[in-house]
Write a protein that binds this DNA or RNA. Structure first.
Lengths: 338, 338
DNA sequence: TAATGTCTTGTAATCGTTTACTCAACTTTA
DNA sequence: TAAAGTTGAGTAAACGATTACAAGACATTA
């Protein structure tokens, strides 16, 4: 059976297509009798207006896109939830895609989105600028960044992200309170703000306690499990080992814990650990891991609401530009007092 | 700046819109000179054909939809990855939505998809039939089920799912080998095949060893963390406790482990445990959890490929109807010998 | 009663593509 | 050299909605 069109409905109800359209879009302008006839026909045929045709005519598709780096990460999975909930509430559908931190894939997806005529895009940029993004901006597609931003576009695109500096500061401050002074940090992907900010929080906390910052204690883990493993390996091979590490995202924490287990080290006895990102399963680990929780669901809802506001206002200028979402240190048992 | 249309390109290249369209869709039918002119104009304007208009004309949108119950579950997150990878390879975009096991949300999303004119849908049905699904089928939208199916639609819709019975059987067989005889099972959502099959595997393994099946050892956990907690509570409150439990999905395993920790029980000393679903973090738990791994990535790729085949063949009849993906028992340390 | 305004409805153009038809300009063939 | 075939282009009609415009039927007003 073919999908019914507005013409089928019109015919069945004995009215013009204009009347059907009006019955649906501005019900008050149609008489009650006709309205009823129309609705009946719609019901009988299971008619739903074609979004394609509507979109073509109205230039609105009621579609958003979420472009993240990895939907398997609980961090992004929760963000996606937030975005989806807001989208659903406002009757928008959602495209989702993963870039795997690859600029190439980011470009590819943005290009596809250009022609899908998405009403707006929420993007976690991989870090470098790219021409497809500029095309989209030229054509006034509303865009909101999450978790990261691009320096060159900072004044044209709003960003929603956690208060990385504060969260990071709290984590390291906590380690200091517990008596640790030789604290390693495993950092994320270079050129990505969230990563840089977390490093800064670490430095600031140390500085405030007048503890010198040692380059050897700063190791890059590039936000992956493997990276976490290797970075911790490096830290553990230091002549003078750190007594604690601050791991700046959940995936790398997973890697770090894996390595500790393999090497037969126990946490926190041999090494204390605090993680940025708090995953659900942290609480059933042995020991339960102390972590900085960022409210990723809120990053999702906030960015989606922001995007919708832009779409609806038709105003594509950003005013406030950076929106911070709170963090919270969840203290468990992976840090020992020294 | 406004999005350039095919007319803008045609004008700039000094040809008709038909030529532009042909240059893009059947390059051999256009002379090299004109083709070059056209391509140049396209480049200069950053022109991308409007999918909306194309879709309206051709009835193909190059869009798939994935409707799952929970993208935060690693099981579905991996499936999504599989689907996305296949989609990207074939130049399709992907809508994703969560039903939270709610029939109401399932209906809502399916209804939205009807008018978006998605080329095909991959659905993890919540378990009960629904009229929106029937509408879609009436209008010949290709659909593939994953992880579950609906009895009434079994002959009209193909399904891709794990070999639940075998995986389950292996898990319980393993427990039996280790000397356990009083084995509890925490089952999933009722009316859902994957859940029923896992229960059956459990029963079959017991029967084959001529161990009687006790109703009190079968408790429903409805696939949620909370459910896992409560179900295990029930099992532990039995006069005669089981020495092992088989937990039939990863989320409930999380709940079970949570409860054990709270109660101060240790695994496997106080209770052995095997999980259906193998999550990445199982290996860093204490003890690492023995689990049945289902290749969810393959469920994703297989279902997507199947769907694409249906879309391309225009043939919406299902022939084989059920596709099974292998499982594997990953033995770690959560089962002790008795 | 005629003029004016309001309320409903229909007609037809339009959004940006694709594609069935045409047709002119060459090639080929006998 | 004339008939037939091949190529490469353009014209214009869809696809399924929305909406400016027109117009008929009433109600209102002077």
């Amino acid at each position: 059976m073919n999908k019914p069109t507005i013409r089928d409905v019109a015919e069945r109800a004995g009215v013009s297509t204009a009347t059907v359209s009006r019955a649906l879009n501005e019900p008050r302008s149609v008489s009650d009798e006709l309205k009823e006839e129309v609705m009946e026909a719609i019901e009988e045929l299971n008619y739903k207006p074609s979004s394609l045709a509507q979109g073509l005519k109205t230039n609105m598709t009621n579609t958003l896109a979420l472009v993240i780096t990895d939907n398997e990460s609980p961090f992004y999975a929760k963000i996606m939830r937030g975005v989806e909930d807001v989208a659903l509430e406002n009757d928008y559908s959602l495209f989702v895609s993963n870039t795997d931190e690859e600029l190439k894939k980011e470009k590819l997806y943005l290009e596809k989105l250009q022609d899908k005529a998405t009403d707006g895009i929420i993007l976690a940029p991989t870090g470098r600028s790219n021409e497809k993004l500029n095309h989209l901006l030229e054509f006034n597609t509303p865009i909101v960044f999450i978790d990261r931003w691009l320096e060159e576009l900072k004044d044209r695109v709003d960003t929603v992200l956690a208060n990385n500096l504060k969260g990071s500061y709290q984590a390291v401050e906590y380690l200091l309170q517990k008596g640790h002074e030789r604290i390693g940090i495993i950092t994320g992907v270079k050129q990505v703000v969230s990563s840089e900010e977390r490093l800064e929080g670490y430095k600031k906390a140390l500085k405030d306690k007048e503890i010198s910052i040692k380059d050897e204690l700063i190791v890059e883990g590039s936000y992956t499990i493997e990276g976490g493993v290797n970075a911790l390996k490096t830290l553990l091979s230091l002549k003078e080992r750190p007594t604690a590490v601050f791991v700046t995202n959940g995936k790398m924490t997973m890697g770090a814990l894996k390595l500790l287990r393999e090497k037969g080290y126990t946490c926190p006895d041999d090494l204390s650990l605090v993680s940025f990102d708090d995953f659900e399963w942290f609480s059933i680990l042995n020991p339960p891991v102390t972590a900085v929780r960022q409210d990723s669901y809120e990053i999702g809802t906030k960015s989606a609401n922001l995007l919708l506001k832009k779409i609806n206002s038709g105003n594509n200028e950003s005013t406030e530009s950076v929106f911070r979402v709170g963090t919270e240190l969840v203290i468990r048992n992976s840090v020992k007092k020294v």
